[in-house]
Computed example of a mutant assay.
Amino acid sequence: MRRWIKRVAITITILAIALVSIGVFYEQAARSRAAKDFPAPGRLVDIGGRQIHLNCEGQGTPVVVLEAGADTSGSPLWQPVQEQVARFTRVCSYDRAGIMWSDPAKGPRNSLAIAEDLHKALRAANEQAPYVLVGASMGGPYVMTFTKYYGKEVAGMVLVDASHPEQTARLAQASGVPASDPIPFVFRALAAMAWSGLPRLVLPDAEIPELPSQTAKAITAYQPTSLAAAFSEAAVFEDSLREAGTFRTLGNLPLAVLSRGKPWSAFSEAERTASGLTREQFNRSEAAWASMQDEEASWSSNSTHQVLTDSSHVMQLERPDAVIAAIKDVVGKVTRANALP
């Protein structure tokens, strides 16, 4: 009996080692294939021992800098906006450390670390201020933090349904639903096992109809390696929000705020179910969100605020025309101000 048990144990161990080896080989081959099939569309800029992907197009000043929200998709989500903005000024999107084509970084990935990386990348690429910063969702607190520390280089700002420093507590109070762990255990486990090939097997393909199929395939290919960095940011969201919350005065800096306003009735039944909210909870949450968006518009005496009733949160995909128009308006204000004697 003991001999039989020992043989079974050895067989299981050998099979496990073989499966892990196959998984590692599969993952490394997939990463090589991703690098070959989906090369970085921009430059890989060295910021001191690691590289940040910076994709700049167009000519002119001020330079528009696009900061993505909390996601594994990074700069590609800005493609519909960037292509059009490049027609009237220079515009740069980029990937934060560990996302898509950028190298990972050690240490907490809070808003201060992110602002420092972006500043180094722009300098290393010789992109010249002044900048108009565009922050979507969590990108809002990131560009506010950048402005806090490098304000002399910032000439204007666009906030695209941007996160608010107090959103966690205020949304929980409004909806009556306590804030949950931003990183469920299963996703933590997947991120930790990226080397094994398992995330690449179980994660669904990116389905983003607003983007070219090749761009969506690139997001899918890099998603497993972007997970850890995205979760590293999520782990310190509250720190990032607090840091951004210490700076809410932009003076007369040109500011455009775009806010979602899509009503409950415009969402599908599947989308309503996925939200986990009742209609009443949704309406209370959206009212709290609208109040916070109004506050963001008050951070500058030279601001505009538009509520898009036909868009939900990711409006750079749902309403890129509105985002482009807001950027163009702020760029125009900056250009006219700089032309004054």
Rank of each mutant, 00 (worst) to 15 (best):
residue 139 G to Q: 11
residue 223 Q to L: 04
residue 330 V to M: 02
residue 248 R to P: 00
residue 256 A to V: 09
residue 74 G to E: 01
residue 242 R to I: 07
residue 206 A to E: 04
residue 300 S to L: 11
residue 84 Q to M: 06
residue 130 P to E: 08
residue 262 K to D: 07
residue 331 V to W: 00
residue 325 A to K: 13
residue 57 E to R: 14
residue 271 E to G: 01
residue 338 N to K: 15
residue 177 V to A: 09
residue 75 S to H: 09
residue 251 G to M: 13
residue 340 L to C: 02
residue 192 A to G: 00
residue 158 V to I: 06
residue 87 R to V: 06
residue 35 A to H: 11
residue 185 F to D: 11
residue 238 E to T: 12
residue 283 N to C: 02
residue 280 E to V: 12
residue 126 N to K: 15
residue 245 G to W: 11
residue 7 R to C: 07
residue 305 H to Y: 07
residue 85 V to P: 00
residue 40 A to S: 14
residue 191 A to K: 01
residue 225 T to L: 06
residue 52 I to V: 14
residue 191 A to I: 07
residue 53 H to Y: 08
residue 161 D to M: 11
residue 152 K to C: 05
residue 160 V to H: 12
residue 107 G to M: 10
residue 260 R to S: 13
residue 238 E to G: 00
residue 118 L to T: 00
residue 102 S to A: 13
residue 201 L to T: 05
residue 288 A to R: 10
residue 44 L to I: 03
residue 136 A to P: 00
residue 69 G to I: 06
residue 216 A to L: 04
residue 252 N to L: 11
residue 15 L to I: 15
residue 95 D to P: 05
residue 83 E to V: 12
residue 255 L to Y: 11
residue 302 N to F: 15
residue 291 S to N: 14
residue 286 E to S: 07
residue 267 F to V: 03
residue 8 V to L: 15
residue 293 Q to K: 09
residue 116 E to F: 04
residue 180 S to H: 12
residue 40 A to T: 11
residue 44 L to E: 05
residue 207 E to G: 00
residue 129 A to M: 01
residue 116 E to W: 06
residue 241 L to W: 13
residue 75 S to I: 01
residue 11 T to S: 13
residue 83 E to R: 15
residue 120 K to S: 13
residue 275 S to N: 04
residue 147 T to C: 07
residue 136 A to K: 02
residue 177 V to W: 06
residue 340 L to Q: 14
residue 270 A to V: 05
residue 322 A to G: 00
residue 54 L to P: 03
residue 206 A to V: 12
residue 69 G to Q: 07
residue 198 L to C: 03
residue 128 Q to K: 15
residue 31 R to N: 14
residue 247 F to E: 11
residue 305 H to M: 06
residue 235 A to M: 03
residue 328 K to S: 13
residue 11 T to I: 15
residue 40 A to P: 05
residue 190 L to V: 08
residue 96 R to T: 02
residue 105 A to D: 03
residue 13 T to C: 14
residue 56 C to N: 09
residue 57 E to H: 15
residue 226 S to V: 05
residue 171 L to W: 06
residue 52 I to C: 06
residue 38 F to Q: 01
residue 61 T to R: 09
residue 28 Q to R: 15
residue 63 V to K: 07
residue 279 R to P: 05
residue 181 D to H: 10
residue 63 V to F: 02
residue 11 T to H: 05
residue 78 W to F: 12
residue 163 S to D: 09
residue 201 L to D: 07
residue 296 E to Y: 01
residue 158 V to C: 02
residue 226 S to N: 00
residue 59 Q to W: 06
residue 208 I to E: 01
residue 313 H to K: 09
residue 10 I to M: 09
residue 132 V to E: 03
residue 78 W to H: 02
residue 295 E to V: 13
residue 135 G to N: 11
residue 146 F to A: 08
residue 134 V to S: 07
residue 255 L to V: 12
residue 86 A to Y: 09
residue 140 G to S: 04
residue 105 A to T: 06
residue 254 P to Y: 10
residue 12 I to D: 00
residue 99 I to D: 03
residue 186 V to G: 04
